[in-house]
Every structure is written in structure tokens, then in C-alpha cells.
């Protein structure tokens, strides 16, 4: 077990092991998404107030959860890279940023499309929506900063610090609907207490949440492999790999 993790830390073995995981992850993730969509679009009943428009939730809510989750992973990986100078953690951190930005964008856009018929507006500047928009800018800032510095290791350190500072926004997003009154409603699914949602609606929501987590794992591995190749382009194993792919 220990040897496995040690191997995972070496770029060559990481590239190989990640490569062998990718097809499996893709298959499981794809099947889960199809199952979740079937449950959400066909099996789940219509909502008593929102009609069928609530079905946007099966994308919106998992995306919003992922936008927070990926940010925490990115900042934690960045911190590990800073403290222990672990190259792979730097790679994971920077590979996470575009995926996190994608999910934040999806949460914002699908929320907006949901808001128009339900609330009566595409957008309001309440605490929840504003803090989620700041999260998108944080992700874009991390990506821009990494791209602006030529030396990859310096770039990784600078972006890690930006990511760590931005972590303060995460609890603000999460608790915004409780600390202040907002147009956005409070949480439905919480760790404590039974969720106030019908079980047939909850199942697709949770299936999609797991599928999105796997999707993140899949894409972060794919991106990390490219980043590892780029960084190790002068190493012998990469030269051999290029000769005989």
C-alpha cells in the first residue's frame, strides 16, 4: 500500500497508473450520469410549486457543490505543494482550476436559467449569487496567474498562495443563505436532519452528485497527465514514450 502511494508520487508511475484508471472512470461516470438523468427526467415526479422547471436542479445543485469541493481540493493541494514541495500536488492543484471554473460557470448559468421563470429575474446581487460569482473570478485568477509566469514551479507557488487566500470565500458562499436574507433559498440537503425533498427527487440528485465527483476525478487525471508530460519533457521516460507511444 505504502509502495503504491510512493509510486504514485513519481511522475512516471503517476502517468502510467492514471492512464490505466481513465477508461474505467469514464465508463462508470458515464453510466451513472445516464442513470441519474433517467431517474431525474423520467422517474422523478413534477414539483408541487415549480412544475418541471425544478429539474434544472439535477445539474445546478451538483455543479454548485462541485464548485466548492474542487476549490477546497485545489487550495489543499496547493498548500501541500508549498509546504512539502511535492510536484504532483502542484500539478493536481493547477489541473483542478479549469474544471472548478467550469462547474462554477454551470452553477451560475443554470441557476440564472432557473431564476428567470421562478424568481422572475435572471440575476440579483444577493449574498449567495455574488459570492459564487467571486468564486468564478478566483478560479479565473488562478488560471491567469499560472499562465502569466513562465517558470512553472514559481507559477505553482504563486497560484497556491492565491488559492489559499481565496478559501475564505468558501464558508461565505455556504453560509450566505443563513447569515443574511437572500433571494436564494436555504439548503435542502444538509448533514443534520432529514432533507425536505421527496425520495424520488433525492435519488437522482445524489446520483448526479456522485457522477460529477467521478467526472472531476476523470478530468483532473487527464489534465494532470498532460501537465506531467509537459514538465518532464526532458526526462528519459518521456523521450522513450514519445518514440514508442
Amino acid at each position: 500500500m505504502l509502495r503504491f502511494f510512493h509510486q504514485l508520487g513519481s511522475p512516471k508511475h503517476f502517468y502510467r497508473i492514471a492512464g490505466s484508471w481513465i477508461p474505467w472512470l469514464a465508463a462508470v461516470c458515464g453510466l451513472l450520469m445516464l442513470y441519474g438523468l433517467y431517474q431525474g427526467m423520467v422517474v422523478a415526479p413534477t414539483d408541487y410549486q415549480q412544475g418541471d422547471s425544478y429539474r434544472i436542479m439535477f445539474i445546478h445543485v451538483p455543479s454548485a457543490w462541485m464548485s466548492l469541493f474542487i476549490y477546497v481540493v485545489m487550495a489543499a493541494a496547493g498548500a501541500i505543494g508549498l509546504i512539502w514541495h511535492m510536484k504532483l500536488a502542484e500539478v493536481i492543484a493547477i489541473s483542478s482550476a479549469p474544471i472548478g471554473a467550469s462547474f462554477t460557470f454551470l452553477a451560475l448559468v443554470t441557476g440564472s436559467i432557473w431564476g428567470k421563470p421562478m424568481w422572475g429575474t435572471w440575476w440579483v446581487w444577493d449574498a449567495r449569487l455574488t459570492s459564487e460569482l467571486i468564486l468564478l473570478f478566483l478560479y479565473l485568477g488562478v488560471m491567469a496567474l499560472y499562465g502569466a509566469i513562465d517558470d512553472k514551479r514559481t507559477a505553482a507557488r504563486a497560484t497556491a498562495i492565491l488559492a489559499i487566500v481565496g478559501v475564505v470565500n468558501i464558508p461565505i458562499i455556504h453560509y450566505s443563505v443563513e447569515w443574511w436574507n437572500t433571494l436564494h433559498q436555504g439548503p435542502t440537503v444538509t448533514k443534520f436532519g432529514a432533507p425536505s425533498i421527496d425520495i424520488r427527487m433525492l435519488i437522482p440528485l445524489l446520483v448526479m452528485a456522485v457522477a460529477f465527483k467521478l467526472f472531476y476525478l476523470l478530468v483532473v487525471l487527464m489534465r494532470a497527465r498532460v501537465e506531467v508530460l509537459e514538465r518532464e519533457r526532458n526526462a528519459r521516460w518521456v523521450r522513450e514514450l514519445v518514440e514508442a507511444p
Binding site: 413534477t46 412544475g51 454551470l106 432557473w114
Partner: peptide, 22 residues
């Protein structure tokens, strides 16, 4: 239920973003 434009545009945008990520 009359929300076709909203629901299907959301799912279409999500599909495009996810496929682009791959």
C-alpha cells in the same frame, strides 16, 4: 410542463461544458 426552453437549454449548456472538459 411549459418549461422546455429553460430545462433543455440548461441541459444543453451542461452537455457542451462537460464534453469540452473531456
Amino acid at each position: 410542463g411549459g418549461y422546455a426552453v429553460y430545462v433543455w437549454s440548461s441541459y444543453a449548456i451542461a452537455l457542451v461544458v462537460l464534453v469540452a472538459n473531456i
